[in-house]
Design a protein around this nucleic acid. Structure first.
Lengths: 196, 196
DNA sequence: CAGCTAAGTCAACGCCTATTGACATGCCGC
DNA sequence: GCGGCATGTCAATAGGCGTTGACTTAGCTG
């Protein structure tokens, strides 16, 4: 009856505060991204990390604090840098035409952001993290005159495609898929274009 | 100490099943849109409607059923028809540059959709409603060859701007606002353009 | 006016949650 | 080898939630 999502970890980890803290944070990142703030239970997070609930309080303080910690840890600065400006639109369009990957870690950060953004509980906790770790890198990556406004637009478009993919019930078939990619790429192209 | 969001209704409404049902539905639409599925409490919904919690069970069956009912009631078919194709991009761009209106009823349906879409609990309940009441009207409004794919893209862009506005911490100042509107309008233009 | 039924009320249950404080125990330095 | 402290465990608390069933009452029907 033990949860089979993670294999039973026979060596229950030596007493190591740093390691358990990290394990809790990792589990929190996953569960918050997958379930959202409300439905993620501290008990389950602790269980997945192989730790006790009370350690969450000790190491982080509470649920909100754990959430903000996981939020910060989910965004690595500079993740945008390596994207090629020319290939970006089509690559992202194709990514968004596909299903949500089973290995969710690749899009964890964005789902995390998305879930957090659309919950009234967590939205207030976002503004700083969004500014520093999301909008600022996009701004820098875009460059140019009205980078702030254009970063907002690009972020909006990006998030929009993310939601669309999240809600999509069945995969796009061949013809619709091709058309979707074409149009999405055109939109993204317009979003990263240097000047209107 | 009574909640001041709604004035105390001195006449507590005569015994009228239909009327109370409607009142509950109306309250549910508001609270679900504002708070999302998880944080909306049946007790509060009933209180806002001036009814008892148990009536929700009697008239709707349970929370999920109430939610789907509110979801269906939130989308009026044909709401898109009156939008002029030419003015649409700039109008929407300006709408999205502004703050979330205090009178939220104007964007209730979309917030409702948004909240529902990004919660794993309610996302499965969405597919039909989204197809029938959201994508289909957009498809019809767009017309043309690959209307299905383009409707998806337009819906994604729309939702994206909605989220951006929802998360925005402070209003856009003059310069950034103008640039934002320009770029957003360009994106929306590309989304409704007849052919790529 | 009497009686019945639909409409509304009330109180309680069971479950799950975050949080907390007291307790046990492994590990490290002396 | 031993004491002390950081680490981990356990149980209990308090509150909120959806759900439920029994009770009361208003309003129509005959």
């Amino acid at each position: 009856m033990s949860d089979a999502t993670t294999l039973d970890r026979a060596p229950p980890r030596k007493r190591d505060a740093e390691a358990t803290r990290a394990a809790i944070l990792e589990a929190a990142k996953g569960q918050f991204a997958r379930l959202g703030y409300d439905r993620a239970a501290l008990r389950d997070i602790a269980a997945e990390a192989g730790a006790d609930v009370s350690l969450i309080k000790r190491y982080f303080g509470g649920k909100e604090a754990l959430f903000t910690a996981a939020l910060k840890a989910s965004f690595r600065p500079g993740g945008f840098k390596h994207w090629d400006r020319g290939a970006f639109p089509r690559e992202v369009a194709e990514l968004m035409a596909g299903p949500v990957p089973a290995d969710e870690t690749s899009t964890h950060s964005f789902q995390f952001l998305l879930r957090a953004a659309t919950s009234p509980t967590t939205a207030p906790l976002l503004s700083l993290a969004v500014q520093d770790r999301f909008l600022a890198p996009i701004r820098e990556w875009l460059g140019g005159e009205d980078a702030p406004a254009r970063a907002r637009v690009l972020a909006a478009v990006f998030i929009g495609f993310l939601v669309e993919r999240l809600v999509r019930d069945e995969p796009l078939d061949g013809a619709e898929r091709a058309a979707f990619i074409d149009h999405a790429a055109a939109i993204l192209e317009a979003a990263v274009a240097p000047k209107g």
